[in-house]
Amino acid sequence: MSMLEVSSLMVFYENALAINNVDLRCQKGEITGVFGANSAGKSTLMYTISGIILDIEKKERMRGGERVTVLGSIYYEGADIIFMETSDRAKKGIILCPERRRIFPESSVLENLKIGGILATRAQAKKTLDYVFTMFSPLKGLKKREGGFLSGGEQQMLAIGRALMAQPKLLLLDEPLLGLSPMMEEILVRAIEDINETTGITILISEQYARPILPIIHHGYVLENGVSVLEGTSQELMDNPDVKSAYFGI
């Protein structure tokens, strides 16, 4: 059974259709990729799955701004969670590692990780902390450094580490490679693969720059203007001529 099943999801921002009838599945223990250009609806999809869209909807409604409408259903472990609060989804194991990292700039690296670990038991937190520091060894020497003073790559490591501390069952990574150097990309891609292999966490990853991610995913979707235009395994996607020309320049 798939862990997450999104079926006929539609999200409107006022009269603009951000996500149009998207169906998506994440199999347990696999890495699923969502690719698409900017404005394809990747971030909206992540917000909708993690529940942040409900906060956005409420905020806009209170201030009389644009109306956000969400239609369709999201099944997580068999239950429809489309109207569930973000915090409740986090307790059930859906953890979002947000776009642009959003780490706490005035807290130290260690504090950032501890904040992430509030849902975890003491033993789990200790184990995950060790795991994060072994996997992202540069963070080890920066424990006391304030989050805001880290480089982009270190911040991304910290953001993923913080998400891991919350003991996710389904980890949502929104544009984890945003603005990183090729070397840092490689480190992070390997880390993501490692998280999936050693801890068995199901990962849903959205990325505009698909080239480094495509080889590590098990299953992938391509979004275009809010519509899911293509889906397949890693190999199928890489062999597709459209994907080739769009992402590999062949």
């Binding site: 006022e14 909807e57 409604r61 109306r67 239609l71």
Partner: peptide, 12 residues
């Protein structure tokens, strides 16, 4: 606003 299969459309 979250509704069933209808949504309220707003136009200027």
């Amino acid at each position: 606003m979250l509704t069933g299969d209808r949504r309220k459309k707003r136009l200027d």
